[in-house]
Amino acid sequence: MSRKTKIRKNVPPYVRLDLRSRKMLVQSLLRTMAKKKQMGKMPANPLLVPKDPKTAIMPSHASILLMSALSYSSHWKIEQLTVDHLRESTREVIQLKPPLHASGVLSRCKPDLLLVLGSDLLLAEDLDFIRSLPFKKAIWLADSTGSSEILRQTALSFDCVFTQQSSHIPFYRHGGCRTVQFLPFPADPTEWYPLTVPEEYRSEVVIFGDTSQKTPALIPVIDSWRENKKVIVCGKGWDCFDDYQVLPDESPWPLYLNGANLVLHLSPSLNRILEAASCGACQISVDDPCLYQWTNPDEDILLFHTPEELGEKLNSLRCYPERRRRLSTQALAGSRFRYSYRQVVLELLRITFENY
């Protein structure tokens, strides 16, 4: 066998297309080339074009300028915990004291983000100065007790707004804020944690919330559960109930929460629920949409709509004590991992830099 024949045997076989098939193939190639040429002339859709990795900022590489505008002395831990976990998650954190407009720090550094905690100490000059800044601005509002037109005008100076109440989101967005997120302050683990308490702090039920038109229908259900045992209440309108001990909001609630067999929320406050979870409390609450993002109903908290449903949930806890222990354990685990300061700060950074 000749050398030429051996080479031909190693060549892959091919199929010769007929004239009609070749024409169809050429036309298909021409159509594809025309489409590519047309797409090259069209303006790119910014929603479909990925961010340039050269200009995108990773939170771990970011420089954060942080200022606390919280007015209450009890809020200093919020600032400290936020700073501690920002330092673990970013390149650097530079702390400022108000007034911001009088600070010369921007002449010495080039931050990627200004984060303001609260708004009580912000001046009009500060807001004008913030609007002129060329980098990202975010504010973490302390608006758990309510919002106002002043707060909405303040929020307009920032690119990202974080609120303590999900019900405030439409209010800020209607005013012109584009990026508004529900992000409550987590419970302080140095203040809210499980511990054994003296007898004077023990009770069968701790109730949070004001009375309403629905309260009279709930009282028989609660009384059936407590069986003449001690009930502690924090809220308005309870003075007419002689068997219930009403305490002010400034009471040592970490002790009372650790001493309660059950915590009942009639006016759900997510901050209160997270604090009780950090103490490992067994909780049941009126159903509210804001709870689903930050809790796992039926796993770390029970929810109800009607007095009848409340009675059913309470009876299930009485009949199955292990369910109460499981709810308490899951709530405590969630406060240590899913809803910890570290996780919430990471979520804040993710939202902020996704919208950079």
Score class of each variant (00 low, 15 high):
residue 141 L to F: 03
residue 52 D to P: 04
residue 280 G to D: 05
residue 273 I to Y: 06
residue 88 E to T: 11
residue 92 E to H: 09
residue 119 S to C: 03
residue 7 I to Y: 09
residue 155 A to K: 00
residue 326 R to M: 13
residue 215 T to M: 08
residue 328 S to F: 03
residue 106 L to I: 05
residue 352 T to M: 03
residue 194 P to S: 04
residue 148 S to E: 00
residue 15 V to Q: 13
residue 260 A to V: 06
residue 129 F to P: 02
residue 93 V to T: 05
residue 38 Q to M: 12
residue 310 L to P: 02
residue 252 P to C: 04
residue 191 E to H: 09
residue 88 E to M: 07
residue 345 V to N: 01
residue 198 P to A: 13
residue 14 Y to T: 15
residue 203 S to L: 02
residue 117 L to W: 06
residue 31 R to C: 11
residue 144 S to T: 00
residue 315 N to Q: 15
residue 303 L to N: 01
residue 33 M to C: 15
residue 40 G to C: 11
residue 319 C to N: 14
residue 328 S to P: 04
residue 186 P to R: 03
residue 33 M to A: 15
residue 236 K to L: 05
residue 187 A to E: 09
residue 39 M to H: 13
residue 238 W to G: 06
residue 253 W to Q: 04
residue 8 R to A: 15
residue 120 D to I: 02
residue 66 L to T: 01
residue 170 P to A: 06
residue 327 L to R: 01
residue 339 Y to D: 01
residue 212 S to Y: 02
residue 286 V to E: 06
residue 339 Y to Q: 07
residue 185 F to A: 00
residue 304 F to W: 11
residue 264 L to Y: 05
residue 152 R to A: 01
residue 340 S to G: 08
residue 268 P to S: 00
residue 204 E to R: 15
residue 74 S to T: 12
residue 200 E to R: 12
residue 34 A to S: 14
residue 97 K to D: 14
residue 19 L to G: 08
residue 272 R to V: 09
residue 257 L to K: 02
residue 335 S to G: 02
residue 131 R to K: 14
residue 279 C to G: 04
residue 76 W to Y: 14
residue 244 Y to S: 06
residue 58 M to K: 15
residue 287 D to H: 01
residue 148 S to Q: 00
residue 34 A to I: 12
residue 135 F to H: 03
residue 35 K to C: 14
residue 21 S to Y: 11
residue 248 P to R: 07
residue 217 A to F: 04
residue 118 G to P: 01
residue 353 F to L: 04
residue 22 R to G: 08
residue 18 D to I: 10
residue 320 Y to K: 14
residue 118 G to N: 01
residue 91 R to I: 00
residue 46 P to A: 10
residue 319 C to D: 15
residue 87 R to K: 15
residue 243 D to N: 10
residue 342 R to M: 06
residue 136 K to G: 05
residue 287 D to C: 06
residue 228 N to K: 15
residue 226 R to D: 04
residue 185 F to T: 10
residue 90 T to H: 04
residue 129 F to T: 07
residue 351 I to F: 06
residue 53 P to H: 09
residue 228 N to D: 13
residue 268 P to A: 02
residue 334 G to P: 01
residue 112 D to P: 07
residue 291 L to C: 01
residue 124 A to H: 08
residue 59 P to D: 07
residue 327 L to Q: 01
residue 29 L to K: 10
residue 160 C to W: 01
residue 190 T to Y: 08
residue 105 V to H: 09
residue 178 R to A: 08
residue 146 G to P: 00
residue 22 R to Y: 11
residue 325 R to A: 12
residue 288 D to Q: 10
residue 189 P to N: 08
residue 33 M to Y: 09
residue 340 S to N: 03
residue 192 W to K: 04
residue 68 S to D: 09
residue 80 Q to S: 12
residue 266 L to Y: 02
residue 356 Y to Q: 15
residue 25 L to M: 13
residue 215 T to K: 07
residue 141 L to N: 00
residue 131 R to N: 08
residue 158 F to P: 03
residue 185 F to P: 05
residue 355 N to D: 10
residue 124 A to D: 13
residue 310 L to N: 00
residue 110 K to A: 14
residue 46 P to M: 11
residue 69 A to M: 02
residue 89 S to H: 10
residue 351 I to D: 02
residue 80 Q to F: 03
residue 265 H to L: 07
residue 13 P to K: 15
residue 214 K to E: 14
residue 72 Y to V: 04
residue 53 P to F: 09
residue 46 P to W: 11
residue 24 M to H: 11
residue 251 S to I: 08
residue 206 V to Q: 07
residue 53 P to E: 12
